[in-house]
Amino acid sequence: MRLLTHNMLSCNIKGVTNGFPLIIEAEKVLEKPVDLNPDFLRNMFHKVEWKALVDAAKSLGYSELPESVDPAMLESPEFLHRFHHALLELHLEEGALVCPETGRKFPVNKGIPNMLLHEDEV
């Protein structure tokens, strides 16, 4: 699971009001090279919750993202490379996503998060 995906997921258990961002418990992390596409990154920049991305990247062992950002940084090749690496090349292969409010764990196996709810959570 890429951090791009993680940045879009939240806990949808009935009654949960603070289900984003999900906490990552990583067991296995992979780096999978992807061609850099600056236009894609510039378009996604405004859709990404930055603090959630920084925290998620740190939980996968990557701490090269700045804590705060400015759209002008999108002109920096170094920033684009770091943003690209965190967003698209880091993969949570095995582990869990944890709801910050309830502590419910959603397993991630072979890079696929299982976000299915139990009957009593709907």
Results as ranks from 00 to 15, higher is better:
Ala56Thr: 01
Ser10Asn: 11
Glu93Ala: 06
Lys58His: 13
Asn12Pro: 05
Glu89Leu: 02
Met8Ser: 08
Pro33Gln: 14
Lys51Leu: 14
Glu78Ala: 13
Ala96Phe: 12
Ile112Met: 14
Ala56Asp: 03
Ala52His: 04
Lys105His: 13
Glu25Asp: 15
Leu88Met: 06
Lys105Thr: 03
Val54Thr: 01
His91Leu: 04
Lys32Asp: 11
Asp39Pro: 15
Leu22Ser: 03
Leu80Ala: 05
Val48Ser: 00
His84Met: 03
Ser59Pro: 12
His46Ala: 15
Pro33Ile: 04
Cys99Pro: 07
Gly111Ser: 11
His118Asp: 12
Glu94Met: 00
Glu27Val: 07
His84Gly: 01
Lys58Gly: 10
Phe40Asn: 11
Phe45Asp: 08
Val34Leu: 02
Lys110Pro: 03
Val122Leu: 15
Val69Pro: 10
Leu80Tyr: 15
Ile112His: 11
Val16Gln: 05
Phe83Val: 09
His84Ile: 00
Ile23Met: 04
Val54Ala: 01
Met8Lys: 02
Phe83Trp: 02
Val16Lys: 01
Phe20Leu: 07
Leu60Gly: 00
Ile13Trp: 11
Glu94Trp: 06
Glu27Cys: 05
Leu41Lys: 07
Leu74Pro: 02
Trp50Gln: 13
Leu116Phe: 15
Phe40Met: 15
Gly15Ala: 02
Gly95Asp: 02
Ile24Phe: 03
Glu75Ala: 12
Gly111His: 03
Pro33Arg: 14
